[in-house]
């Protein structure tokens, strides 16, 4: 038991929360950026996977982690634009199209991995590169806080900075306003001259961008290789985290941190011989409970408003 308390209260534990939260946070922001404009991007999982794959491949070919990142993010954005095309131009059901894109990415990455490396499980035979970790001056010298906040992967910082950028973008810029207008009421937005289609394309593109960063983090930071289906549901967890936080980037961040906490705790619990199957299950059970609580409170809210309307 002592071991457990020690493990959870250590700076390393908090450090690891931020680390495992990173891909979930990117996914949640991706979900948010599509959701404010009224489209549910189920394809985040596949976009992340694609980005993780191309990040590793291109970094191995060019010898540069940054070009790898660029390639990964580009692949994810292209995928999101393709999804938007099917959704907006060909009128495909967005959820089913998203599922199709996930299946496609899962198959395509394994197929290409085998074609390029002769290996079907992972890219460990390739020499690929990872993005650097960053020490923050001053903060790194503060005891405990420095251990927690400094020395993270560059994309971890980008993720948390993105929270502020996305929040500002959605609520303080003209384009953000249009995104929200389209999400709230597409017909009304159309009637005042906003092109719903164009705005939804933009929102999908931004969503793909965030998913791309999340995927690149997995294969070029979290670990240094690509493995088949390595996203392992993080895209979906991101969707759930965003659902918890509503239409706020900060809400998405808190949601993601909750899942990060559950995941980090599962590693610590593993150290004291609680079966890994059991600890891996925790975040998912957590999501279901959180979703139930969230849905219930929303329902009560609606009921309350209706009752007040009756009184008035």
């Amino acid at each position: 038991m002592n071991e457990l308390v020690h493990g959870i209260l250590s700076p390393q534990f908090f450090y690891s929360i931020l680390r495992v939260t990173t891909p979930i946070l990117f996914a949640a922001l991706a979900a948010l950026l599509s959701d404010v404009a009224g489209s549910t991007n189920i394809g985040i999982e596949g976009m992340m996977l694609m980005s993780a794959f191309w990040g590793v491949m291109v970094s191995a070919w060019t010898g540069s982690a940054w070009i790898g990142l660029l390639a990964g993010v580009t692949s994810s954005v292209l995928l999101s634009l393709a999804l938007a095309y099917f959704y907006l131009n060909l009128k495909t059901d967005l959820v089913l199209a998203g599922i199709a894109f996930n299946i496609f990415s899962s198959g395509a990455t394994v197929f290409l991995l085998y074609l390029f490396t002769g290996d079907k499980g992972s890219s460990s035979s390739l020499k690929s590169y990872v993005l650097p970790k960053i020490d923050i001056p001053l903060i790194k010298d503060i005891p405990v806080v420095g251990d927690i906040l400094s020395g993270h992967h560059v994309l971890t910082y980008i993720a948390f900075i993105s929270v502020f950028v996305v929040q500002y973008f959605i609520y303080k810029t003209p384009l953000g306003l249009r995104l929200r207008a389209v999400g709230e009421n597409p017909d009304a937005a159309q009637s005042v001259g906003i092109s719903v289609k164009k705005i939804r394309y933009i929102s999908m593109l931004l969503s793909g961008l965030m998913a791309g960063f999340g995927g690149a983090f997995l294969s070029m930071g979290y670990v240094s290789w690509f493995a088949r289906d390595m996203t392992n549901g993080r895209g979906f967890i991101g969707l759930a985290a965003q659902a918890l936080g509503g239409h706020s980037a900060f809400g998405s961040m808190w949601g993601s941190l909750l899942f990060g906490l559950a995941e980090a705790a599962s590693y610590t619990l593993q150290a004291i011989r609680i079966p890994s199957e059991f600890t891996n299950m925790l975040p998912f059970i957590f999501t279901i409970i959180a979703l139930a609580i969230y849905a219930r409170s929303k329902l009560l809210q609606i009921k309350k408003i209706k009752e007040e309307e009756k009184k008035a």
Binding site: F236, L239, P275, N280, F284, I285, I288, Y294, L299
Partner: peptide, 30 residues
């Protein structure tokens, strides 16, 4: 959850997939 609280069955059923997987593996492997 859908009938009672109108919770999205899409997300909850997806999460149940993962719970089934890990719980199932735990039961079988242990």
């Amino acid at each position: 959850m859908k009938a009672k609280w109108n919770a999205s069955e899409l997300v909850s059923s997806l999460m149940m997939n993962y719970v089934a997987f890990y719980l199932g593996l735990y039961i079988i492997n242990y």
